[in-house]
Design a protein around this nucleic acid. Sequence first.
DNA 1: TTGTAAGCGTTATCAC
DNA 2: GTGATAACGCTTACAA
Lengths: 333, 333
Amino acid sequence: MNPGAKPFTIQDVARIAGVSAMTVSRALNTPQKVSPDTLERVREAVRRTNFVPNAMASGLRRARARLVAALLPTMVGPVFQEMVEALDLALHERGYQLMIGQSGYDATREDELLRAIVQRRPDGVVVTGVVRSEEGRRVLRASGIPVVETWELTPTPIDMLVGFSHPAIGAAVVDYLHARGHRHVAMVSAGDPRALTRVAAFTERAEALGMQTSLTAFTAAPSTMGAGRAGLAELLARAPGVTAVFCSSDMLALGAAIEARERGIAVPGQLAIVGMGDQSFAADAAPPLTTVRIDGTRIGRLAAEMMVARAEGQAPAAPVVDIGFSIVERAST
Amino acid sequence: MNPGAKPFTIQDVARIAGVSAMTVSRALNTPQKVSPDTLERVREAVRRTNFVPNAMASGLRRARARLVAALLPTMVGPVFQEMVEALDLALHERGYQLMIGQSGYDATREDELLRAIVQRRPDGVVVTGVVRSEEGRRVLRASGIPVVETWELTPTPIDMLVGFSHPAIGAAVVDYLHARGHRHVAMVSAGDPRALTRVAAFTERAEALGMQTSLTAFTAAPSTMGAGRAGLAELLARAPGVTAVFCSSDMLALGAAIEARERGIAVPGQLAIVGMGDQSFAADAAPPLTTVRIDGTRIGRLAAEMMVARAEGQAPAAPVVDIGFSIVERAST
DNA sequence: TTGTAAGCGTTATCAC
DNA sequence: GTGATAACGCTTACAA
């Protein structure tokens, strides 16, 4: 390394190539506007100096950072992985770089991160979930930066949105279980806002159908397999008669399936289990997990497209998209 | 939103507050150098405009971006999660923002990402694994940006390093299994460079101890539970006499454990299984998994400390740290 | 305590 | 096809 060594600037390269800084800039950005001869001299100078242009300077001048920021509540688990990968890929193809920041599931932290992001003047911001704090919404709105909220719906998006309805999921899972003959159901759930919405709709729908519901077993923050085991244990202690459980993530469902197995409870014979997310392991569990599938890849791709359209001055085809969900039926129900 | 609206600048705020831009800058960065009275007027103007300073401009002038970039090979699985979270937390405490980029397990992509990162002139770069391409190493070195390579050792780090020895892990697991009486061992492994190093050392050590080894079952790119199941199936078809398997990740080990169970093979009675990573689910599997633990939190924290020390002009206490590993013994062996 | 001037590295614009 | 100049928004250095 070269600690503290000032990297070469475009001026240095220009001097070495015997041209002006402007010509170096052209050689780098619009090579067709430079004579082949000059181009070669500049390229040689760039090679020799390992010159890499300063994006803060060019971003400042161009007022475009070619950067899109994504806010994730957490990297825990593969929940948002599909979305992030699709987003990264789609943006990369369009010449944008993705920058990821983690907010934790914490509102204060989210506001701070939002500020730090707006400071860098990215060409767009993708947030996971809707922005809840008034402060955060104000900062984003005032910044004029295109925003895509994802992963849920709201009647009042900041700007664009691509998500799905959590209440609809809660209700759909109840309907599915009801159709399969279940009359006493419950949930093992994390406590984040989106999961809570599903819980509420689940309970409401079950009651509307005259089913018996037992109090949801809530798990501590990270949705681990251990939490799923503990959650099911708690539930069974309280409500031994439950015949079907909807877990708020596949990891919890996997834990619940293991706990059931250890207790000699047959799945799905005595207890049906439904997960959420259709993560890679859901299909390979024993038994394979019935789960709610969200097309994360599609969310990521759509978000990227909307973002880029807006960044380049066009209006996105549709600023708000509900991508829906599907129940993938496997052997656990 | 406010598409295309130019956000307010420090000049706008200055005008509104009736002071100079410099005073606004001071009010924001060194409030103690501004009279309480003026401070209040500036704060009011900031509030009214929702002003957020432009980090490209201040970074350009200060030559410090207060930004650290981390390169992850992939977000698949929670392998690097502990490290990223510790890194994020430690940097946040010191006033730096973490920016994450994914390189995929692809060398070309890694070089591109490295360039994109160097362009933003972060105060430091943390890479997962050592940088393998000569191109990437040159770019980083020439940039003068502090670099911490992590997660493995090399005699030729670019700058700083905090990692552990993969060959030592391969050998240690063999020793552990040998001591437990196993004489025929094999691996189910992913094919990334670090895993390959463990495979090589594992095989070599086993042969040195006169143990029988069977060809490693290699799994396709993402280390999923399904890959673990398939890997064990392949291995058993080829080498039914194996009594112990070392899997290159806990996810693979979990899959192997499930596959064994489905086949009626007792774990650990007929087959011992060792995982790698000590991820959250390892302790809660049935049976709980013996695994190799890496202190990802410590890696993240140390990397942040080194980075910040160097960024602030001090020499880090030790530029190269081997944090070692430990074998966590549970019921799967 | 506050303000003025200059400059960080790049590119848009206009001239040659 | 190439170059000089100014400007992007902020902060350092210096002056008042």
